[in-house]
Design a protein around this nucleic acid. Structure first.
Lengths: 126, 126
DNA sequence: TATTATATTGCAACTTAGTTGCATAAACAA
DNA sequence: TTGTTTATGCAACTAAGTTGCAATATAATA
């Protein structure tokens, strides 16, 4: 089951995602909210928000978990077929509005796909 | 610098990749070769083989590192634009010969791209 | 072949992202 | 306000991957 009670911790976490349009990693959240709540709480709330399809998660370049607000996810069945872009300079991660065409693979059933692009973001690419 | 000496450990590791056409995770190698060599040695040799473009690496579904023999990598500049497929049932990982078309992203420079597909593989998809 | 310089290995200890169990505290319905 | 259930904090744990260093194997040179 997902989120059942709107606690202070849930509100604080959601605030962070409302503040920025970029994705946020669990590590960054733990750092940012270290005075407000425990890391265990953060991991648990993130899990639930994902279950509730409020957030979607994916892995960044080091295999660390990132989260972003779901927009078109609920409509398309939470497929997250959009690519994620991580800047190799500043580390920032964004969801790209583009859709990547995943080719049909013979004899296999593709359920989910993750596309991670790396390079220079708008600010670091001068 | 990459591999300089053809040691017993290097040969044993390369043997594993010659035996199977699938990708192999560092964890699996550590398990398989536990009697032959130390995990530190395995991580170090994998690093060097990747530097030498003999292997390429990518992250599986849990953020764990996987390695596969390079085939067209050297030609295309080690871009690894091919997708990797991980079976959600048996866990096996393969390089797919297909190429995924990565769309141009305005105002950004894309250097590398990773595509991980998950679903049922040929054997588990009945 | 013996010697020597250098690369490689094993080991133990460490780092760190994420998880688990349990006692306590906060939500919320009645 | 009371009682039931959910959420939280804490400490301890798990596991992938890393680091420093002493010992060993490789390969070039004499």
């Amino acid at each position: 089951m997902g989120i059942l009670r709107k606690t202070k911790s849930v509100r604080l976490l959601l605030d962070e995602f409302d503040k920025s349009s970029s994705a946020i990693s669990a590590i960054i959240l733990i750092e940012r909210l270290s005075l407000e709540m425990n890391k265990t709480t953060i991991y648990r709330i993130l899990d639930k928000l994902e279950e509730d399809k409020v957030l979607h998660s994916f892995l960044g370049k080091n295999g660390h978990k990132w989260y972003a607000k779901c927009k078109e996810c609920s409509a398309s069945g939470h497929q997250d077929a959009h690519p994620h872009f991580q800047c190799s300079d500043c580390g920032k991660v964004d969801c790209l509005p583009t859709n990547v065409l995943i080719p049909k693979i013979p004899n296999r059933k593709v359920d989910t796909s993750q596309v991670l692009l790396q390079g220079k973001c708008e600010e670091c690419f001068v």
